[in-house]
Nucleic acid binder design. Structure first.
Length: 228
DNA sequence: GCATTAACACGTA
DNA sequence: TACGTGTTAATGC
């Protein structure tokens, strides 16, 4: 997968006119980010809309005491930063860190290009609405799960949320995801995530593998309740 | 009761 | 060796 392929296959790139697409292809930049390194840093000005060509990453926020929580993950084919980028002028400041969990190839669509598309392309605006709505829906679901479900169910829903096609264009049943990473995403300790995964495996919803999880029953994960 | 942190053993890339 | 996983013990609300 390279930048051009990614743009031409993306949900939004497909619907651009020939001249819009060629401008995007001309102005988009690429940058490799090694696993463990920052893609964007909280507090820095947002200069580009960010896409993941390859790799896997997370959006996270650190507390003053050093603890850290993951807000959501970012998979290949996904874009982020539109919410930050549409803030006016100098108030477009990253409100979170984005960190590469695996080696990543990042696409950077400059802010000016992003603004040009927003100003001229109705399909692009429709795409942005769908993306932002999907993101909002994900966070609403996350909040309600945090408040209403026990931690095993939260881990189940968390796994299921990684299969939203509007946010993660190419979902595969095998997730290359450490238990510690899933724990941060679900907001539980690694030990508790391990226990939850074993329960979900016993229930036949997933298969545990070293360094990852194979999802066997997505609908079952989405509907999982109780069994703490 | 349920979850957290710390610590340790074990197997593998 | 460093990392990922599975377990247990001590502790807190």
């Amino acid at each position: 997968m390279n930048l051009h392929e990614m743009l031409e296959n993306s949900l939004w790139g497909r619907n651009l006119s020939a001249s819009e697409l060629s401008r995007v292809l001309r102005e988009c930049r690429e940058r490799p980010v090694a696993a463990g390194h920052a893609i964007v840093r909280s507090g820095e000005p947002a200069e580009a809309w960010m896409g993941l060509i390859t790799g896997f990453g997370k959006m996270s926020i650190g507390a003053p005491d050093g603890r850290e929580t993951t807000l959501t993950s970012i998979a290949a084919g996904g874009w982020f930063g539109e919410g930050t980028l549409i803030k006016p002028g100098r108030s477009a400041i990253w409100q979170y860190d984005a960190v590469a969990l695996r080696d990543c190839q990042i696409a950077l669509l400059p802010r000016e290009t992003f603004e040009y598309l927003r100003a001229t392309s109705l399909p692009f605006n429709h795409y942005l609405q769908k993306l932002m709505s999907a993101r909002m829906g994900q966070f609403i679901a996350q909040m309600s799960h945090d408040r209403l479900l026990n931690s095993t169910a939260r881990v189940a829903r968390c796994l299921a949320s990684l299969f939203n096609p509007e946010l993660y264009p190419e979902p595969k049943p095998f997730l290359d995801l450490r238990q510690a990473e899933l724990a941060q995403l679900a907001g539980v300790s690694r030990q508790r995530a391990n226990m939850a995964l074993q329960k979900l495996a016993e229930a036949g919803l997933i298969e545990l593998e070293r360094r990852g999880v194979a999802v066997l029953d997505l609908a079952g994960l989405r509907a999982y309740l109780s069994a703490s």
